[in-house]
Simulated scan of single mutants.
Amino acid sequence: MSPLTPQAVTKDRVQPGETIEDEGRVYAVRSIERVVSVLNLLQESIDGVTLKEVADAADLPKSSAFRYLWTLEKSRYVERDTDSGLFRIGLGFLGMQSRHTEVLRERVRPSLERLRDDLDETTNLGLLDGHHVIYLEIIESRRSVRLAASRGTHDPLHSTALGKAIAAHLPEDRVRELLSEAGMPSRTAETITSVDDYLAELAKVRRLGYAVDNRENEPDGRCVAVPILGTRLPAALSVSAPEARFSMRDVEKTARTLIEVAGQITLSPTGTA
């Protein structure tokens, strides 16, 4: 491997096998090397890593490691689990994680189809995409009157059960940031439009294990959702139906079924269970 002189760097392209050196000094940027070390560590982890593990991998004090992670989190390249405090790869790498997303969709679809057949109502798989929820999969009810979005469309985080189920497991400062970016417009007379009220609702979601959209996104719609906590993606499952035939008692019963289904879904780095 032949070194390059400063004069050689002015060439249009670097030849294979060449390194860039100046009087014996390799042109490596230490801060970038540390970021790469952090991202490599996160990429190799399924469940997430601790702040100490990040500090050790990057050869940094914990205070400095936290600043690196905070910066990466602001750009959505890192996410922090509020319950465990562990750090994971974020949605900034969604393009790289497209295979994980597709594997998740493939794994969830049979469960959504069984739920639709059992309940005869629409079932959904949603994922956090920017400051909205995107529908990755929708299995529509066969009934002529049904509540269903379209695959690939977006809905608000603040007025949907899917959004609440996902947001309940994000850091509070991240939730506040998302709400600030998207706003909290009133979709119906029941929509939560206050940040404090929404955060209180998320606490309820964490306590119950499921989220409810009770005519908050559609005036005649009701939906129940649960987070999929066994994956590295911020995703959730839901069942939606016209509120006239989906009582709150039905919601509670359906939520228990959804929790069981979500608990069976896992995703490894290779896309297998």
Rank of each mutant, 00 (worst) to 15 (best):
Y198G: 02
R245M: 07
E218V: 13
H158F: 02
P234F: 11
R207T: 12
H158V: 02
S141E: 06
H154N: 14
G163R: 00
A244Y: 15
H158G: 08
E201C: 00
R222G: 08
R249P: 10
R142G: 13
N214A: 12
V212C: 13
S141M: 05
S180L: 06
G183H: 08
K204A: 11
G183I: 09
H169K: 05
A236K: 09
P185R: 15
R207C: 10
H169S: 02
E243Q: 13
R142E: 15
L202D: 04
E172D: 04
N217R: 11
G183T: 07
V224L: 10
A167R: 01
R142I: 07
E216Q: 08
S194V: 00
A211C: 06
L179R: 03
R187Y: 15
V212E: 10
G152I: 07
I228D: 11
L229Y: 02
P227W: 01
V251C: 09
V226H: 09
D213W: 07
I166T: 01
V212I: 15
V224R: 03
L170N: 05
V175Q: 00
L162S: 04
S194W: 06
L199N: 04
N214H: 12
L170Q: 01
A235Q: 08
T231A: 05
S240V: 12
E177K: 09
S194F: 03
G230F: 12
G183Q: 07
D250I: 14
M248A: 14
L147R: 14
A236S: 14
A225N: 12
A235N: 07
A182S: 10
L147W: 15
E243G: 10
E201P: 01
G221W: 15
R215M: 11
S240C: 14
E190H: 15
D155L: 14
D197C: 05
S159L: 02
T231M: 05
A200M: 03
H169R: 08
T193E: 01
R222N: 10
P219S: 14
A203G: 04
R222T: 10
A149H: 14
A236V: 10
V205L: 06
P156A: 00
Y210I: 06
A236Y: 11
I228C: 10
N214T: 10
M248Q: 15
E172G: 00
L178A: 12
L170P: 06
I228E: 10
T160Q: 03
A182I: 04
R142W: 07
D213F: 06
A241M: 12
C223Y: 12
P227Y: 00
D213L: 09
